[in-house]
Lab assay of single mutants.
Amino acid sequence: HEITLHINGRRVKLRFRDEKAAEILKEAAKKGLDEEELKKLAEELWR
C-alpha cells in the first residue's frame, strides 16, 4: 500500500504494509515529523 502525505507543502509518498502502519504514519505527520523521519519510520514499520 502507499499513502501520500502533505508535509511542509510537499507531497511525500510512503509505503506501508497495513492499516495500523498507515495510522502510525498519519499520527507522526500530525506531530510534526519531517520527511526524513517519516521515511525512516515507514521503513521500520515495513519490517
Score class of each variant (00 low, 15 high):
R47C: 11
L5H: 01
L25D: 00
R15T: 06
H1T: 09
L41G: 00
K40W: 10
K20P: 08
K20M: 11
K40M: 12
K40G: 09
R47M: 14
A22R: 14
D34C: 07
L5T: 01
K30M: 13
E27T: 09
A28G: 06
L41P: 00
E19Y: 09
H1I: 11
G32F: 06
L14G: 00
E43H: 07
R10G: 06
G9K: 03
E19D: 11
E44C: 05
D18K: 02
V12T: 03
K40D: 10
L41C: 06
L33A: 14
K13G: 03
R17W: 13
G32T: 04
E23F: 10
K26R: 13
A22E: 08
L33G: 08
I3Y: 03
D18L: 03
I7Q: 02
E2C: 13
F16D: 00
K13Q: 10
A29M: 08
L5S: 00
I3N: 01
R11K: 15
R15L: 07
H6P: 03
E43G: 07
K40C: 05
A22D: 02
R17Y: 10
N8L: 05
L25I: 11
L14Y: 04
L14H: 01
E43M: 09
E36N: 13
D34K: 10
K30L: 12
L25K: 00
L33N: 06
D18V: 04
T4F: 09
I3D: 01
A22W: 08
L14T: 01
E44H: 11
G9M: 02
E44N: 08
I24D: 04
L41W: 03
G9F: 00
G32P: 03
D34S: 14
R17F: 09
E23P: 03
K13I: 15
T4V: 14
L14D: 00
L38W: 02
K30I: 10
E37T: 07
E23H: 12
E23S: 12
E23R: 11
E23L: 12
E44L: 13
K13P: 04
G9V: 01
E2M: 13
K30Y: 10
I24G: 03
E27C: 09
K26P: 00
D34L: 11
A28T: 03
E2Y: 15
A22K: 14
E2W: 15
A29I: 13
V12C: 04
V12M: 04
E23W: 09
A22Y: 10
A42Q: 03
E37F: 10
